[in-house]
Design a protein around this nucleic acid. Structure first.
Length: 606
DNA sequence: TTAGGGTTAG
């Protein structure tokens, strides 16, 4: 005898409390068919169903993802209250059918039903732009709901989603909060928008206010640490993570942090100790290996994943193709690209095309890269064109570079990086008039190159070196050591490559300009202040220039040191914070891998 | 009876 027969026998069907208990039971057991039977019984027992029971049924259909059934029941209801309206709004919001959720809010108003905090927190997530967000924010004030913690966390998330971090912070600062989720929302907002500094400041504020960080807080904090590439701070956060031993999301974030901070030994330790690994774990490790120059190992791990791991997804394949492009594996790249649909059921998307364009570009097959770009099944975006432009810059093809740059500037008219790269290509191919015209356009538009800036962490302190800024207290010793080092390197064949200087300077002066690139100063400072056995880890806001890359490689050989420089990829969009660091340039990892790493800067295997 | 925060990509 099932639960319904039992209740029927006891004559409890007219008792709406019994109905509600049954519906709750169906929801928690995901008993779809039983739930439908309850609905049928309710309609056939001769009593007018109570509104709250119908609302519960509505919620049940929504929880079962039966949106059509829910809509049908909603249409048939003779009376609707704030709960039934909110349930429908929430359903459309979760199903990402934003216009319906917003439309229901208007209809609800027209029927004279006032929204409450539940309604706003649901409808905010369906917000489809800043205009509607501002209108909703006004309504929230009108109904006096701005202090509700659910509404506030939703407002913070949505302002951040639309890039309005100042507004998100204003909402946060409006009231003192005793709610951890509101803290997590604001920390997560800054971490997800590549503003690691502010995210970490908020995290400290939270701790000072007496809150204990839990999984979501630590995950966002790790993300902030990752965007800033602060390995030592990451290790400190790791200590807090230990008490949430097997939290999958947190472990994935930890794994990513170690990969992006260039510590693959730690990443490998995390990966091997994880009892549960999902598609994100595998994808993170594959991409992490590739980003650190271990392309062959990345592909080997992918083969293991195919045998023992979860089914690869869209992002996994991006990582695999990234490994191919950075390893210079042209044939394997084509194989995975051509067979991804058949093998994994994934249609190639913009990112996969981007990797292939990168792969062809690095191999100097620029015409093929252009053909592939024109074959794309979706519109190429600025990042795709920027990948092509980067390859043109390496191979000094001014015609294709100019074509790619024009496409980028159509999409992002003030993109500084594009002007710099194009001007670089014009100058190296001696197209002086084009270079001059471009300079004039830059001047007219007030476009300036962001100064190169490198950071290095020594004794828990971040030391910053900016091009032409000689304010570091030990700058005299550093430049002295740098001069000595350059002399030593010249002895093993180092010749400064002045192609990477964009200024109107000649000869020796050109070399001087190169000499004080921020990453060179940071490398020398690392050599001077870090013990012989420790890795020199540097972060740079722009992409490392070819000369500095060559310099770093020679230093690893002559000084027997490991240097990891994490720079800004040519293909990613620069942000105003300049902290969107998404690639590691490996300048020598002796004894760690025999894999050849194909370098974009010097177009050779290192 | 209705609502919230966290992880992977070029």
């Amino acid at each position: 005898m099932n639960a319904m027969q039992c209740l029927e026998k006891q004559g409890l069907w007219a008792d709406y409390i019994a109905y509600s208990k049954l519906i709750k039971c169906c929801i928690s057991n995901r008993a779809v068919e039983e739930g439908k039977l309850v609905h049928k019984h309710l309609l056939s027992n001769g009593h007018e169903p109570k509104l709250f029971v119908l609302s519960m049924l509505l919620n049940m259909y929504v929880k079962f993802n039966l949106l059509d059934e829910a809509q049908k029941l909603f249409d048939e209801m003779s009376e609707r209250n704030v709960v039934s309206w909110t349930t429908m709004i929430s359903a459309y919001s979760n199903a990402k059918i934003s216009h319906k959720a917003l439309e229901f809010l208007i209809l609800m108003h027209r029927e004279g039903v006032a929204p409450n905090m539940y309604t706003f927190s649901a409808v905010l997530r369906a917000c489809d732009g800043l205009l509607s967000l501002r209108q909703l924010h006004c309504s929230i004030f009108k109904y006096g709901l701005e202090s509700d913690v659910f509404v506030r966390s939703a407002l913070i998330d949505v302002y951040a989603r639309w890039g309005e971090l100042g507004h998100a912070l204003a909402v946060f600062d409006e009231f003192m909060t005793g709610d951890l989720v509101v803290w997590n929302s604001i920390i997560g907002s800054f971490a997800q928008n590549s503003n690691g500094d502010e995210a970490l400041r908020l995290f400290k504020r939270m701790k000072r206010a007496g809150f204990r960080a839990e999984q979501a807080t630590l995950t966002s904090t790790l993300r902030a640490v990752t965007t800033l590439a602060l390995l030592e701070l990451g290790r400190q956060v790791h200590v807090h993570v230990l008490k949430f031993d097997q939290d999958l999301i947190l472990n994935n974030a930890l794994l990513d942090m170690y990969c992006k901070c260039g510590s693959l030994a730690d990443a490998h330790g995390i990966f091997s100790q994880m009892r549960e690994r999902d598609v994100i774990t595998w994808s993170t490790m594959i991409a992490g290996l590739a980003q650190n120059g271990f392309s062959r190992e990345a592909l080997a791990l992918f083969e293991k994943m195919k045998l023992y791991g979860p089914r690869p997804n869209y992002i996994t394949v991006v990582g695999v193709l990234f490994a191919c492009s950075h390893g210079g594996f042209l044939e394997e790249g084509w194989y995975y690209f051509r067979s991804m649909k058949k093998l994994f059921g994934i249609d190639p998307g913009r990112e996969h095309y981007g990797c292939m364009i990168d792969l062809l570009g690095r191999a100097g097959k620029l015409e093929d890269a252009v053909s592939l770009l024109h074959e794309m099944n979706c519109e190429p975006d600025a990042v795709t064109w920027r990948t092509l432009l980067g390859a043109c810059s390496v191979h000094k093809n001014a015609d294709i570079a100019s074509y790619a740059a024009k496409q980028i500037l159509k999409l992002e008219p003030d993109d500084v990086g594009t002007y710099i790269l194009l001007s670089n290509v014009y100058e190296t191919s001696q197209r002086w008039k084009d270079a001059l015209d471009l300079r004039k356009t830059m001047r007219d538009k007030g476009i300036r190159k962001e100064p190169g800036c490198s950071w290095i962490e020594v004794n828990k302190k971040i030391h910053t070196f900016t091009f032409r800024d000689m304010s570091h207290p030990e700058i005299d010793e550093i430049t002295g050591e740098l001069n000595k080092l350059i002399l030593k390197l010249r002895g093993v064949g180092y010749v400064p490559d002045t192609n990477f200087v964009l200024k109107d300077v000649e000869g020796e002066q050109k070399e001087d300009t190169l000499q004080y690139h921020s990453e060179k100063l940071a490398i020398v400072f690392g050599l001077m202040s870090l013990p012989k056995e420790s890795i020199i880890r540097i972060r740079k806001n722009l992409r490392i220039c070819g000369d500095c890359h060559h310099f770093a490689k020679l230093v690893t050989e002559t000084e027997k040191r490991v240097i990891v420089i994490r720079d800004h990829t040519a293909s990613s969009k620069s942000t105003h914070q300049g902290f969107e660091l998404s690639a590691a340039v490996r300048a020598g990892f002796p004894n760690l891998s025999s894999t050849a790493n194909f370098c974009l800067n010097c177009s050779s295997f290192i």
